[in-house]
């Protein structure tokens, strides 16, 4: 079995400016933040980001790396409005494809199934159609037996990505990933919808003993690289390994970006984790 382990910087060395990147997790939950931080250390820019957005989008927006965003929302969950995302939108910093949460999911399904689109009811009648003039509709070839009507749906285009970044609780060296929290989110779909997928994990394991089979979310055939990075979702939640770091998230949301970068993002991942820990110790 091939050993796919690599460092976060090695992952980013395989990414190019102008790429379409999918980022797993949801809002401020189990986001591959260590991979995002590695991206921030690189020169990779001009990105199209596909995400159920949280601080991943906020940080990339603050750093000016986004050309286009595909999203249904960007939130820090306990802080409903992501400040850096808001600022970027209000200054017209990048292009936005704003779709509904379900449309987004079906776009991932279409890509994972190598289909050009999936029909969805969501979107019809809303301004999602107005702000996305490129969205097309598709009419059912079947009449409804009761009404005789052929319904017309949104043809949600496939959200195919050059690369996906996800974070899970455990992974093995060949790219099998396990989630241990209550929700898988859509990380398996992100991996299957991308040409290359990189999985970071809290802990690398040799094998999954006494496994609950449903927890083995990500399969190695859809994974290119594996990164062991404890605390790699920080400050987002990664239960049961750790909850969201609420005080730190508040700090992130209220600190001007240059100041935050200077204090926490000046060095590598180890430096970040250590600076975050120091900040907590100083608060006591």
């Amino acid at each position: 079995m091939s050993d796919k382990t690599m460092t976060a910087d090695e992952v980013v060395s395989r990414l190019r400016s102008g790429m379409t990147l999918g980022i797993g997790g949801w809002g401020s939950r189990r986001k591959p933040m260590a991979l995002v931080r590695a991206l921030l250390r690189s020169q990779v820019t001009d990105l199209t980001i596909v995400s159920y957005g949280g601080p991943d989008v906020g940080m990339l927006a603050a750093a000016g790396r986004i050309r286009k965003l595909v999203a249904a929302f960007v939130t820090l969950d306990s802080i409903p409005l992501e400040p850096h995302y808001r600022a970027a939108r209000q200054s017209g910093a990048f292009e936005l494809t704003e779709v509904d949460e379900a449309m987004f999911m079906w776009g991932l399904h279409a890509a994972a199934n190598r289909l050009p689109f999936m029909p969805v009811r969501a979107g019809i009648g809303s301004d999602v159609m107005r702000v996305n003039p490129g969205l097309r509709t598709v009419t059912s070839p079947y009449e409804d037996t009761a009404t005789g009507i052929r319904e017309t749906f949104v043809a949600m285009p496939a959200l195919r990505m050059d690369a996906a970044l996800v974070h899970v609780n455990r992974a093995d060296r060949s790219g099998n990933g396990q989630y241990l929290g209550p929700d898988p989110y859509f990380d398996d779909l992100f991996c299957e919808a991308a040409d290359n997928a990189y999985v970071s994990c809290e802990r690398l394991v040799d094998r999954f003993d006494d496994v609950v089979p449903q927890t083995l979310l990500v399969n190695r055939h859809s994974v290119t690289g594996v990164v062991e990075t404890p605390g790699g979702a920080h400050p987002t939640s990664c239960v049961p390994d750790h909850d969201r770091d609420e005080p730190f998230q508040k700090l992130y949301a209220t600190t001007p970006w240059p100041e935050f970068t200077e204090r926490f993002l000046y060095g590598d991942e180890k430096a970040y984790q250590s600076a975050a820990q120091t900040w907590h110790e100083e608060r006591r």
Binding site: F73, A102, M103, A122, I124, S126
Partner: peptide
């Protein structure tokens, strides 16, 4: 719940449409 003002460049960015389109049609 998406934004206030012109969508292209909102005066105030809010949550985004979230699941409101799918909720209301279903």
């Amino acid at each position: 719940i998406s934004c206030i003002g012109d969508w292209e460049r909102p005066a105030r960015q809010l949550l985004g449409v979230r699941g409101a389109p799918v909720n209301t049609l279903n």
